[in-house]
Design a protein around this nucleic acid. Structure first.
Lengths: 145, 145
DNA sequence: GCTATTTCCTTAACATGTTAATTGTTGCGA
DNA sequence: TCGCAACAATTAACATGTTAAGGAAATAGC
């Protein structure tokens, strides 16, 4: 009747942390030479894929909390990787766009990043890889749409 | 020949982040009333399961980086949740143990935590849940032993 | 024994995660 | 139009992630 919590060795939260660490390790290694962080890379990726976005949408697509994005945007603006412009219709809003310098970082590393991901896909196998993404999606509260 | 990076909507790193966020949300909510963080909860969990541990082993089992554990241990020691004692044989080393107050936090919330995890297990189904843990394990570089 | 290396841990510095409070803006209804 | 709720974004405060450097104790060789 002692509810015996699951052993930490089979704990879902810990398994997620470790898997993330394993996946990000080579990506961080690649990015360390560019001077940008994993989160800044995500911002560039999203902007490159969707074009200029308002801050709310960008935060959502890059999976960043608002306060984090505020700080990251300041850093990236100072680095010349993005531009921030106010919406003149609704001056509360803001649009963020990637600059040519930002796009260059994407272009210069897209191939290597793709190889890293392909490596994980090959390691698991195509079917298992898709299964994994599906199962992870079921744990994401924001993926009900 | 354009290597076309995977859309961020099917990106493994982002899927891992979002899944982790989804799983941790209810756990953080539970812990907010106790005043301890998710990481402090992990430390207590590991100590309750394995007994007193040296810092290196604890950091490994709780998936915390060393500098983080140093700070977390200081906080938890000040809260009276753990004790830190030097190894007199090898005075570089240190042992960390859970206190009765720390154990009480585990005891008071083990049932609720188990229910939360059971909820995710039920949502995915037993088979898929085990599959997920196995696949995540394959992404963990430290699970080769 | 004595130095160089290794090991265990801590500090430092910067970036992000997390929650709460705050500041500007817009819109709306009395 | 005045006041107030709602909204977008920032700031604040604290904790952690991440990498690099530092410090103290043990160990290996010579």
């Amino acid at each position: 009747m002692t509810r015996s919590m699951p052993s930490t060795s089979r704990s879902l939260p810990i398994a997620l942390i470790r898997a993330r660490e394993g996946v990000m390790q080579p990506i961080r290694e690649m990015l360390s030479k560019t001077g940008i962080t994993e989160q800044q890379w995500r911002v560039l990726r999203v902007l490159a894929e969707y074009g200029p976005l308002d801050t709310t949408t960008l935060a959502d697509r890059a999976s960043l909390l608002f306060p984090s994005l505020t700080r990251i945007a300041t850093t990236m603006r100072n680095k010349g990787l993005i531009t921030q412009t106010r919406d003149e219709t609704d001056r509360r809003r803001q649009f963020i766009a990637i600059t040519p310098e930002g796009q260059k970082i994407i272009d210069d590393h897209a191939e290597q990043a793709a190889k890293i991901v392909a490596g994980f896909r090959a390691k698991l196998g195509d079917d298992h890889y898709e299964t994994l993404l599906d199962l992870l999606g079921q744990l994401d509260p924001g993926s009900r749409e």
